[in-house]
């Protein structure tokens, strides 16, 4: 028993050093050398300031920007969270209706427009950076109008949206999507 205690203690210590110190530090060292930008959070700079991360969605409510999905936390990262409302929740149904009517009225859409499903419901992380291509297309008129674009510039905006549409990865992993933050970043630079 005493021998077992001693071995257990030593082995626990050795494995802690191996898997709790050497391993994470090796991963950190290698990834900071090979992929420093990604290891540090894929941060995006604008005018010398950090304006967010490519991977983390952010809140946009002004008409001049494309909007992301609803978020249970309003894109607050501390902590990340979904709504955790169940499939028969009255509250969830209320939110769905609210998101639908807001999206239709503020985008000046026909009242029977099919609003893409991800624009009605909050994501799991509350930080989803993406929307579907269709959800971006439906917002083009509103963004163009809010920014006072003429028809030539609106065409440019349209092609910008399509440029930012990512196909499923390696052609079939995941869904086609648009990164809202990256699109809006480019939108500010649209000449």
């Amino acid at each position: 028993m005493k021998k077992q205690l001693l071995i257990a203690f030593r082995l626990f210590l050795v494995l802690t050093i191996l898997t709790g110190i050497i391993y994470p530090l090796s991963v950190t060292f290698l990834s900071q050398r090979c992929f420093p930008a990604k290891a540090n959070g894929s941060l995006v700079m604008k005018n010398g300031r950090i304006s967010g991360s490519e991977l983390i969605g952010q809140q946009f409510s002004g008409s001049g920007y494309f909007w992301p999905r609803p978020s249970a936390t309003g894109y607050n990262t501390l902590p990340s969270s979904g709504s955790n409302l169940g499939p028969t929740s009255v509250q969830l149904r209320g939110l769905e209706e609210k998101h639908r009517s807001e999206f239709i009225s503020r985008n000046m859409l026909n009242s029977n427009t099919q609003v893409p499903v991800e624009m009605l419901f909050a994501s799991g992380s509350g930080l989803d950076p993406h929307i579907s291509l269709q959800a971006a297309i439906l917002q083009i008129n509103r963004v163009a109008e809010a920014r006072g674009f003429d028809s030539a510039k609106k065409l440019k905006l349209q092609s910008l949206v399509f440029k930012f549409s990512e196909k499923p990865q390696y052609s079939f992993f995941g869904e086609e999507r648009v990164n809202v933050f990256m699109l809006n970043l480019e939108l500010d630079n649209l000449k």
Binding site: R69, G82, S83, N84, L85, P87, L92, E96, V117, E118, L120, F121, A122, S123, G124, S125, D128, H130, I131, S132, G174, E175, R177
Partner: peptide, 12 residues
């Protein structure tokens, strides 16, 4: 709605 996206991420 079918294919509810509540709690799901667009990319998956």
């Amino acid at each position: 709605i079918a294919g509810n996206m509540e709690g799901k991420e667009t990319r998956f």
